[in-house]
Design a protein around this nucleic acid. Structure first.
Lengths: 341, 341
DNA sequence: AAAATTTTCGAAAACGGTTTCGTAAAATAT
DNA sequence: ATATTTTACGAAACCGTTTTCGAAAATTTT
């Protein structure tokens, strides 16, 4: 009952392999009589063409390689889910890899995917890659004309399509929102200061401060290391100045900051307002529910997949584009009302 | 700069393809002189063998197909992460598919994976599949001798290796824990009553009640439909009887139940204790933090991957096994202390 | 110097399909 | 009855690689 091939069927009917192939594909070249018998036999024995052979011949695999740094991060699973949705609709499969934020693993993964395993690749860089700023492995893919879409964490050294979040505007918007609710001393807590994403958000923050004539104070942006003790750093921050608003650049630290601040006896949002990035389930169910910046992960995934598929199927070498997705602020209970309303 | 093949290299050096192949693979059959030149050329032009051709020849792909019902569920992403870890260690790649809890999509996915796309498959059934109890698509895989490991949601109609959670014991244990803290009226809220998993938990619950001489009351187990209004159902439940403990069979409903109960003015755990299944981040950060049943998702993933890989690499037809993972209760603030302590 | 051996390479098969082309037999047209 | 067209199939190439086997050339052994 093991795998059945065209050759075996050919032997059964004492015809050639090509005849069987044509019969199964319902070619007019084969008599109805023979076709019928072969097709029936194929069905009974559950014949299914060997995908590898097909792929080899057609030089395409109808699969997309997806590389994300960390699947346990809600934003990435959202993006993944979006990619899966449109890939599925358009008849593509997903070969998914996790880089674990490691440069070496990312390099290995891309080498693997580059070996005709997939028709195109969607990737968000590992943190370490951004830190080291080494892009040769991407350049290889570009050189080999393998369609590539980068999302969220991108590099402008790589010539490919991109889908990014407007992080600059997001930082600007949330800072402004804090100010509009009467907050005056806005701090930032970031665990992703190596990434373009994190930096842009801080830039937007600075811009907003500048426009409000509030001097920028670098001590108010807490840059977290892996081994940093968040609790300690927050203590220092709150002792340093009477902070009344904190913008946390990812969901986990937002939630942690909330917990720590509450533990220290502050009321949220009365004493301290908090806004977190990534609008996941955590933000929704924590108490008080966190006002969050939604990056529309699912949409980003869908967009990336659409762009990639178009690029793969359309051979016209149109220029590479960068799609920028605007964030939106989802209001909940960790921030106060705007003063002007 | 496009893909380079053995044939092209052969033309450059005016030798045969087989010579190039041997040279690149450092065969002793080729003179050091020629080998050196070819290897250098290959390196300069970044030659990488076509994976499809290799796979076809070797009749294996070194990839594992993973099918999960829903990637946005923390338990499954945990399992996925565990699978990825050991697969990666052992040199396998993951082709991941999402069934979206749909029977049809699961069938399609398995047909795809069955076409020599992967060497083995790890799967947790879609809800609809469990509901319809149709297992033919699994039987096909078994018939074709494709190594298969089912986890969490399994069927005993399918002859394959399995990794399951001891859900019966889990239901039993958590109910007992409630009783040991002085609770007397324990309710259950389940959104997964179609699944073996959910049923077993309820069975364990009954067993515990029975041992404590508490009559089983079917009205105390709330079976949720997709379109059910949880808030309404909880209202009915609480009006029906003075419930002082609720066991929720998945994380999301646990969190929702907590929210609703708090909204209604009950104190958790003083008035009502709550325990949820799946020990994810949500449970940890909600207020009060939820006592939860940990299913050790990552470990399950690792175990499943190990079992599958062993089955794939070891041709001895040893019997299929079912590995049962014990759950553990992670104590937090949504339950009271045991009376005897 | 003849024989045996080793070195070094190429031809061809194999993996499992699809597809182009050629051709004998059957059917149709003249 | 002959010429032409269909019909119905097979042979062979092809995708890119590895591998077995054969054989010429170079080397070593006798």
């Amino acid at each position: 009952m093991k795998k059945i091939t065209l050759k075996k069927i050919a032997q059964v009917f004492n015809v050639s392999v090509s005849t069987v192939s044509k019969a199964i594909n319902d070619s007019h070249e084969i008599s109805d009589d023979l076709k019928g018998k072969i097709q029936q036999y194929a069905k009974e024995n559950k014949y299914r063409p060997n995908k590898l052979a097909l792929n080899l011949r057609q030089k395409k695999t109808k699969t997309i390689g997806v590389v994300v740094p960390n699947i346990l991060n809600y934003f990435f699973t959202q993006v993944f889910s979006g990619i899966e949705k449109v890939a599925n609709e358009k008849g593509y499969n997903l070969l998914s890899c996790i880089s674990d934020e490691s440069y070496d693993k990312e390099v290995k993964t891309l080498e693997f995917l580059g070996g005709n395993t997939v028709d195109g690749i969607i990737i968000s860089m590992a943190e370490e890659t951004q830190f080291k700023n080494k892009m040769d492995h991407f350049q290889n893919l570009v050189d080999e004309r393998i369609p590539l879409v980068m999302f969220d964490r991108v590099s402008n050294e790589v010539a490919c399509d991109k889908v990014v979040v407007d992080d600059y505007e997001a930082g600007y918007k949330t800072t402004n929102y804090f100010l509009s609710t009467g907050c005056s001393t806005v701090a930032v807590v970031t665990a992703i200061d190596h990434s373009s994403v994190g930096r842009l958000r801080v830039e937007g923050y600075k811009k907003a401060l500048d426009e409000a004539n509030i001097p920028y104070d670098d001590k108010l942006v807490v840059r977290l290391d892996k081994k940093d003790d968040l609790e300690l750093r927050i203590s220092f921050l709150l002792n340093y100045k009477k902070v009344d608003a904190i913008m946390a650049l990812d969901e986990m630290t937002a939630v942690e900051v909330l917990r720590i601040v509450k533990n220290k006896g502050y009321k949220v949002p009365e004493d301290i307002s908090i806004i977190g990035f990534t609008n996941g389930k955590l933000s929704r169910y924590v108490t008080p529910a966190l006002t969050s910046v939604s990056q529309h992960g699912t949409y980003i995934g869908e967009a990336a997949a659409n762009i990639l598929i178009e690029r793969m199927e359309d051979n016209s070498n149109r220029d590479f584009s960068t799609l920028t997705i605007k964030t939106s602020l989802v209001m909940r209970d960790s921030t106060k009302k705007r003063l002007d309303q």
